[in-house]
Design a protein around this nucleic acid. Structure first.
Lengths: 255, 255
DNA sequence: AGAATAGTGTCTGTTAGACACTATGTG
DNA sequence: CACATAGTGTCTAACAGACACTATTCT
C-alpha cells in the first residue's frame, strides 16, 4: 500500500500577510484616522516563464515556492522583496495550510506568516509591480474579494493572531514610529483591540506612562514633547526592551 | 535556473511532543509530587518494510510521514495512535522545522505539534511497542539524550509553548481530572510556571475561587468536597467554558 | 474668548500581598 | 493533643474607573 519512496508533497510555499495601519489626516492638530490594512497582490496571467498562471487575476497573499536551500522564513523574505519591494521586517510564522485539495495543482503546503509594517516604511519601498496590482485593503474589503486558494482562511487566521499578539506583546511598536505620543499608541491599539480601558481617555493616559515597557523620551535632560497632533505639547514615549508576560492566574505584569 | 516543475520537498512529516504531569504519592493525605514529562519513543533498527531505519536507536518524538490524503493534524492523530496507543486528545500545532540539512535523507519538513495528556489517560492506553521503547522522561533528562534529527530544538520550543499556554489559557485543565482540588491545580501550575502569587498558599487559595473560568462543584445543592490529599475536606472545582483573555495594557480578565 | 487635545485631582470600590489566625480531621 | 492541610480575618498600599477639573496652544 505504501510505496517504498517517501510520500512527497508537490510543493511547499511560503505566504505572507503584510499588515499596516494607515493614517489619514483628520485636519491639522488632530489625531489621525487609523485603519488596519492588509497588502495583497493581483496574480498575473502568466508566470515568469510565460506560462498561464493558476488563479490568475485573483487577489492573493504575496508568497511563492520555497527552495530546498532555504527555510520558509527566508523564502518569505525573498518573495516579499521580489513581489512587493518590502524587506528588513520581522516575519512571524503562525500556521500551516495543508488540507488536501486546497490547491488544484496538487498536494501543496503553505507555510503562513505575518509581517507588521509601519506605513512610512511601506511608502518608501520600490517594486517592479504595476501599482494597480499591489494594493492595501481594509480587512472588511479584503474578505469580500474573490481570493486565490484558501487565502481567505489564512487572512482570517492571521487577523486573529495579530489581535492576540497586539494584546499580549509589544507588537504595537512595529506600527509606530520610534517616538510617539500616547494618542498615537491608543489609536493603533484601537484599530485592532476593543477594550474599554484603552478607549477611556483618562484611564489610558493615566495608565500608559506606568507601563514597564514604555518610557518617556527626554532630550537634554528635559522631557521631549511634540505637538504633531495637538496644540498642547504632548509627551513622547518609546518602547524599551521589556518583554511583558501576563497570566490568567495573576494580574501583575512580569518581565 | 528554476525548473519548470515545482520545487518539491522530499517528505512532509508530522511530529508530536506528548506532555504529561506525573504524580508520585508523597504519603497518605499529602499533596502529590508532580513532574512535567515528555513521551519519547526509541527509533527501531528497521522500518515496517524491514529496511534499515535512519537515526535508529535514538530517542525521538512520535510522528511520521503525512499522507497526501490527510492533514498534518490527522497524521499526528494516526501516528500517535499507531506508535503510542494514545488517541482522542487535542493536538496543537506550534511550528514548522524546515532548515536545509535537518534530515540527511533529503529535504524533509516537520510540522510540529504538542499534546497534553493527563496521567491516568496515558496509563490506560494500549500499544504494540515494547515498553522499553516508549518512555516518559523529565524535561531535563530528555534534553540530555542523544535525540534524533533536530528533535532537541523541537522539544525546547514545545516547552516554551506549553509554558506560554499554561499561563495564558486554561491549558491546565488537560493535566487534571474533571474535578480537582485547588492544591492539585496549584501543583500543576507550579510544575511549569514560576510565579510567586501561585506559590504563596494564602494568596492562591484566596484568588483561585474568584477566577471566572473555575467553578466550585456542588452535589445535591451542597458544595462537594474531597479529602484525597488532606484530612480537612477540600472543595472540588472544575473548569467551565470561559476563555480568559488578558492584555498587557489592562489587567482585567475578559472573556 | 472658544475650541480641542492632553493631561491631573480626587474619590470610591476592589484587589494583591503579608501574616496571623481558625477549621477540620487523623493518629 | 500534635500536626498537617485548607482555608479565613484583617490590615495596608496600590490601583482601576469615573468624573470633574486644569493646562496649553491655536485661531
Amino acid at each position: 500500500m505504501v510505496s517504498n519512496k517517501f510520500i512527497t508533497p508537490d510543493g511547499y510555499t511560503s505566504d505572507i500577510a503584510v499588515f499596516t495601519i494607515t493614517s489619514e489626516s483628520n485636519g491639522q492638530y488632530k489625531p489621525l484616522k487609523k485603519n488596519l490594512k492588509i497588502m495583497l497582490i493581483k496574480r498575473s496571467d502568466r508566470d515568469h516563464e510565460g506560462k498561464l498562471n493558476i488563479e490568475a487575476g485573483k487577489w492573493a497573499l504575496p508568497g511563492g515556492f520555497v527552495r530546498s536551500s532555504e527555510t520558509a522564513i527566508q523564502a518569505a523574505e525573498r518573495k516579499l522583496y521580489e513581489e512587493t519591494g518590502v524587506s528588513g521586517l520581522r516575519i512571524k510564522h503562525f500556521g500551516v495550510y495543508d488540507s488536501p485539495g486546497r490547491d488544484e495543482r496538487g498536494w501543496i503546503l503553505s507555510n503562513a506568516h505575518y509581517v507588521i509594517a509601519n506605513e512610512e516604511f511601506l511608502k518608501s519601498r520600490k517594486t517592479t509591480k504595476h501599482a494597480s496590482d499591489i494594493q492595501l485593503f481594509t480587512i472588511e474589503d479584503a474578505l469580500e474579494l474573490n481570493l486565490a486558494f484558501d487565502h481567505r482562511q489564512i487572512i482570517d487566521d492571521a487577523i486573529w493572531f495579530i489581535k492576540k499578539d497586539m494584546a499580549l506583546t509589544t507588537l504595537a511598536k512595529h506600527f509606530l514610529p520610534k517616538e510617539f505620543v500616547l494618542s498615537e499608541l491608543q489609536g493603533v491599539l484601537l484599530t485592532v483591540l476593543d477594550d474599554p480601558s484603552i478607549k477611556a481617555d483618562a484611564a489610558f493616559f493615566r495608565k500608559a506612562p506606568t507601563l514597564p515597557f514604555l518610557e518617556a523620551v527626554t532630550e537634554n535632560g528635559k522631557l521631549k514633547k511634540s505637538n504633531r497632533y495637538s496644540k498642547t505639547p504632548a509627551q513622547l514615549y518609546r518602547f524599551n526592551d521589556f518583554q511583558p508576560i501576563t497570566s490568567v492566574y495573576s494580574n501583575k505584569l512580569k518581565g
